[in-house]
Each structure stands twice: as structure tokens, then as C-alpha cells.
Amino acid sequence: MFNRPHLAVFVALLALFGALLIVGCNPDNPQSILDAKGPVAQRQLDLYWIIFWMALFVFVVVGGGLLYTVIRFRRRPGQGIPAQVHGNTKLEIGWTVVPAIMLAVIAVPTVISQFYISNAPSGDQLQINVTAHQWWWEVQYPDSGVVTANELHVPVGMTVSVELTSADVLHSFWVPKLAGKMDIFPGKTTSMWFRADEVGEYFGQCAEFCGESHAWMRFRVITDTPEDFEAWTASQLAQAAKPATPEATAGAGLFLSKACIQCHSTTPGVPTAGFPYPAPNLTHFGGRTTMAAGIMEMNAANLREWLSDPNEVKPGNIMAKEARAYTDPASALSSDDIDNLVAYLQGLR
């Protein structure tokens, strides 16, 4: 079909388009799917590259054919009526069979990979149960009894099996660099698995529209060395740290008097079930790296912003709608109250 120069032009075109398409994306972006850090994401990425190059090949061939056709056969002055060709059976068979073969080729790894990512490998596994809420993540480790929120600590290199359920509407669990999505439903559980091959911090985000603050339902997966993970687990099971400063002590009092405690547990291992409204367990809140479901760095300024007006940070959230401090003007938090609460919360490690 091609002679030498044509082939060279074709390959050059392919490379050019490919390069253009690839530079559009930046694998360093925290949620880039082009930078797999675990076997599930890697499988998905491998498949992506296969279909990407096949698609690009087809695009250059067919798009090039289209371009050539419209240029080559443009109407010229004085041209008569062209030959009235109605069809060609051989051609029809050809362009039915060739795509069919290409699809059959891609179908094989598709099915194999589908089974691979659907079934967690046997062997040592860490089990994590995630309950999605509007708009945060409750994380439970059934083996150790740890309960936390919005940050999953996992040991590097270990298969993590995640069971997912929702307390309200649909959500979807997604850590682009580790694994594709799995949807989350109320009234049933779904499951997925991943493994992180490098120590690091990976961004995750809810990927199924779940209401007003869908954009602000993020989380982190933090991979630790086995030793660090052991240490982390032990620290999570410990009782909450006692307030160490006068401000923190005042904050602890406010935490009770402003009824924060009615929804936010500060006892290790207590899940949301049974509380009037589901809210993150804050026992070791100050030890997390992010807050408000992975959307801001954990620091005094951000905490202050959140406590001053949670609805501004995350529109529609339950705390802003239901907590006495925000609904009852008599219980509103003063600036000092907020400082004290910040001190208390940051001390919860």
C-alpha cells in the first residue's frame, strides 16, 4: 500500500500526532491516570496505550484518507459528471473484516484485564471498609479496629481489598494513580482492590455526582513502610491526646458545650453508626495531613476558616446546616472560641 517515502511521511505524522496528544497531559498532575503506581492502574494504563496507538493509527489512516479524497477530487472547471460508481463488494468486505480483526485483537487483553482487576489476588491482604457520606469518607480497618476519615493509610506492596458502601446517595471511589473507579451504593456493598508499589501520597476523589459539594469530596491514600503502618495503626488505637495548653483545654470544653461531641466521636474505633448525624471520628484528627475531605492542608489557618463558616468551604454540608453552633445564634462561636477549638483539634494526635 505504501512505498518508502509515503511510509516515512505516515510514520512521521503518527509520531507527530502522538507527541502532540501526549504533551497535552502532564503525568505529574496529582490525579493523572498516565502515571500508574500500582498493578491495577498499570494494567489499565497498558491497555490504554494499546488502544491509544491503535486509535491514532486508524485516525491517521482514515483521517488522512478523508483529507486526500476531498483535496484530490475537488471539482474542477468544466468537469463533467463523474462515473456513477455504486459500490464494490471486495472493498466492503475488506473494511468490515479489518476493523473486526483489530477489535478482536484488543478484545483479548480487555477480557483478561477485566478479570484481573475484578478479582483480588489471594495471599496477604489488608481489608478496609469505606463508607461514603455526602461529602466525606469514613474508613474502617476491621482487623485492627481503627476508624478514621478521608485518609487511608496502607502498607506499601500489600494488596488492599476495599469494601465500599454508601450512607446516602451514590458515590464512586477513585485513586487515579492506583486504580480505576468503583461505584458505591446505599443498601449494598461493592468491592475493589489495589496495591501501591511506592511509598507516597496519592490523591483520590469521588467520581459519581453526589450533590452540591461533589467537587469537594476528595481523599488521600498514604502508603507507609510496613513498620510505619504498624506504628500508625497503634497510634490510631490509642486514646485521644489530652489537651496540653490552656487554649486546648478551653477548646475541649467547647467541644462538649457546643455539642460537637454529639456527632464527632473522640474515642478510637467508634464508627458513625448511632450518632444523630454521621460525622468523622476526630480522635486523631490533628495527625491527619489534610482536612475537610482532602481539600485543604491541615493547619490552623484552614481550620479557622472551616470553623468560621463551613458552608463557605463546602456548600451544603451537614455541620453547617445542623450543628447548634451554626444554627442557633446564641451558641455561635466567637473568635476566641474558634482559636481554642483550633488548638484543641490540632492537639488531637
Binding site: I33, A41, R43, Q44, L45, L47, Y48, I51, F52, A55, V58, F59, V62, G63, L66, L103, I106, T110, S113, Q114, Y116, I117, S172, P176, A179, G180, K181, M182, A207, E208, F209
Partner: peptide, 24 residues
């Protein structure tokens, strides 16, 4: 021309395992 591009990205979506990354 546009439908070729849309059709090819459609085929990319049909690859269920990698579509789990592209979905939504």
C-alpha cells in the same frame, strides 16, 4: 472528521478495564 475522533474515543471507552479510569 469529528465523528472519526468521537468514534475512536468511543472504542477506547468500550475497553471496560481502562474505562474504569476514564468513566465520569
Amino acid at each position: 472528521a469529528m465523528f472519526i475522533i468521537g468514534g475512536l474515543s468511543g472504542v477506547m471507552h468500550s475497553i471496560a478495564p481502562s474505562d474504569a479510569q476514564q468513566q465520569d
